[in-house]
Design a protein around this nucleic acid. Structure first.
Lengths: 243, 243
DNA sequence: ACCTGAACACCGTTCAAGT
DNA sequence: ACCTGAACACCGTTCAAGT
């Protein structure tokens, strides 16, 4: 038992996620809820209605409980967001045997993309420095995959940030396209409203790409875009590694 | 005057940003505010207190006006966000003469990074498909820089998305580090709270990188990280272009 | 120790005036 | 056409009970 240094304590939800809050055998009434249950309920809500629908009240309603009850499990809305994000992300997949480091890294990227595809609202959550267990496990896993690359410590960390950022960016773009399928703003319609002539005069290259249909991106094309960027990055990394 | 097709009209703020709302010479009292003034006020507020401080009420307060007055200039909070984002981004820089396409693209990326550095809270704003004039002008500008590359239409658009996403990701990371300098969560402290042994057992590679000080990122190191990823991407693109 | 109920400050949005 | 003032539903958060 080492002395605790001064400073802010870990938020309740994060502490629980790391398995530090051994709630077993404590006095008083036993809990009606669990952090995992709260997270699952929040995820179901977000899956159904998107990130904007997430609120303490809506989650509590689903659980048949008062809003304030959630504060027994979580310190704040912010704390809750971290937990929900981490639960929706889930544990990273196992590393495939026998793949070289480039293929292993590519598999990591596709796996992360798939998680985002399953929960598109993840792209709407504020990005944070990851300290939740699953988030860190993903990073750990990617670092492991990069160990065969011959890149240095620093370079592996940089490469991990590059790949992770790439996947998240693409996931956000894919989410936007999903959203465009439903209701909101269609490129062609917006241009119509702005005025095609004004639009073409101001941003001719963008206008011509749109009218060539290159802005319209069905699912398989988004897949190609994803692989395009991934290939560029991995090609750049392989070259650096002297492959 | 062509017939308007059915569908949602352009939000008021966006229409104004494109110069479509010729407010001159209309009946009734003249406006006390302007969209540009509202945006400037919002930017000053966010610069001072961050994205969380942004609200219609706080902006109106700075302008000496009621919250509801803003609805004469903007359709919704969402509409306002688009305008604020676009104003903070500003117009893209001119293309440097004589640079080859790789250097021109790199200059674009650095310029965008600098805009984000000036307004770090931009990284906290929801990412959207860009339809505001400055946002589109940046895209137009990058597409122009890529014209000398020999890449095809589709590839140029993909490359633009890749580079743009990269810069935004890095800007978000840089913002997190800024935030870590002030108050919030320090890596070492969080590990201390989780328990260094548990942490090292679960994510050994991350733990060793942190204890090696590679997580600590002063300003010049962030700069190196930025150039690292940029080099990888541009190297991958050059190779594709057959350079 | 858990959960409820009441209260607070704040948020975006609407509607009916006033000028 | 602009701006105000009142009202609404909703949000996160706190505090004092109850069990």
């Amino acid at each position: 038992m080492t002395e605790r240094s001064t400073g802010a304590p870990l938020p309740r939800g994060l502490r629980q996620a790391w398995g530090l809050d051994t709630t077993a055998g404590r006095p008083g009434p036993k809990a009606m809820l669990s952090l995992a249950g709260i997270a699952a309920s929040a995820i179901a809500l977000a899956d159904a209605e998107g990130a904007e629908a997430l609120s303490l009240g809506r989650i509590a309603e689903r659980l048949g409980v008062t809003t304030n009850a959630l504060y027994r499990y979580v310190d704040s809305r912010d704390d809750l967001d971290v937990i929900v994000h981490d639960h929706a992300l889930g544990a990273p997949p196992r590393i495939p045997d026998g793949a070289d480091w480039v293929e292993a890294a590519a598999a990591w990227c596709r796996a992360l993309r798939d998680r985002y595809a399953r929960h598109p609202w993840l792209s709407d959550m504020r990005v944070r420095i990851p300290f939740a267990p699953h988030s860190l496990a993903w990073l750990e896993d990617l670092l492991e995959r990069l160990e065969g690359s011959g890149l240095g410590d620093r370079e592996r960390l940089q490469a991990a940030g590059l790949l992770d950022g790439y996947v998240r960016t693409r996931a956000g773009a894919a989410r936007d396209l999903l959203r465009a399928d439903a209701g909101t703003p269609d490129a062609g319609e917006v241009i119509e409203r702005i005025g095609p002539d004004l639009f073409a005069a101001r941003v001719p290259r963008v206008a011509s790409l749109i009218s060539a249909g290159l802005y319209r991106t069905p699912h398989e094309v988004a897949e190609e875009d994803f692989e395009f960027g991934l290939d560029r990055i991995l090609s750049g990394l392989r070259r650096l590694a002297g492959g």
